[in-house]
Design a protein around this nucleic acid. Structure first.
Lengths: 137, 137
DNA sequence: CCGAATCCCGAATGATACTG
DNA sequence: CAGTATCATTCGGGATTCGG
């Protein structure tokens, strides 16, 4: 997540009417969601936890092909920060850390499920379009 | 869009059962959708076109605060390639380029609408969680 | 004048090695 | 087991320039 310094300060007016969200405005929280999901891994983590229930770090890593430890940790921390999942540390002999969706996270999962549905239904069309487009050039 | 060289070749087996998409697999098309939407701007372009109908390049740019010409062009090309929108060039004196959603694009729009709804309903919770988390550390 | 391509830099990402 | 630290590399993205 591009947290570091990118403030995107709205400054000047703060004049957004409350309750009225407009993702086209830079400072808008709803654009933040887009950025969260923009994280390639975030959605996958949520879906993984949603489908298979609580998971340990290594299980999560195993589920999601191609993610590096660094990215997984980073993603998970971001999601925890946003209250989408909980991180539970059990200080046993080998430490054990479990991740689980919060109710908020589960509600987001439903939306992602729609996305997944759409994908399964339409990805073929996209592939066709892409192939056609690539062939035509 | 990390299109360039990142092949992520699945190769070996191609052994994915047809009709069965698993976004956890690297080569899976459904992960591609996530990456497409991962493009911060892609969703905004689609929503903009969905809400305000066909738009010219400059109108699009005006709608979406904070996007650079480069990113807009790049995003739009990607979406065109995926068959989500059409790009129509009218070679008038000052060139005119119109963008419009395809049926496929409009169907995706519906899914994005759910996302937007969710955002408007729950972003406040995320902000609260975030504030609490940040305060606690 | 509108839209696209180039250059360049900082940030994000990923592989590897190390620690509690 | 579950991370953290470091380094090398790629990539996003803004300013600028080109084309028509």
């Amino acid at each position: 997540m591009g947290t570091t310094g990118s403030v995107e300060a709205p400054l000047s007016g703060e004049g957004r009417p409350p309750g009225r969200y407009d993702a086209f405005q830079q400072g808008c929280p709803s654009r933040r969601l887009i950025e969260t999901l923009g994280d390639k891994w975030a959605s996958l983590v949520i879906v993984a936890l949603g489908l298979r229930g609580p998971l340990r770090y290594s299980e999560l890593a195993a589920q999601i092909a191609g993610v590096s430890q660094k990215m997984l940790t980073q993603t998970v921390r971001g999601l925890e920060r946003d209250g989408l999942l909980t991180r539970t540390v059990t200080p046993s002999v080998p430490v054990r850390v479990d991740y689980e969706l919060t109710p908020l996270g589960r509600s987001l999962l439903e939306v992602l499920a729609h996305l997944k549905e759409w994908a399964e239904e339409h990805m073929a069309e996209i592939e066709t379009a892409r192939a056609a487009h690539d062939a035509a050039r």
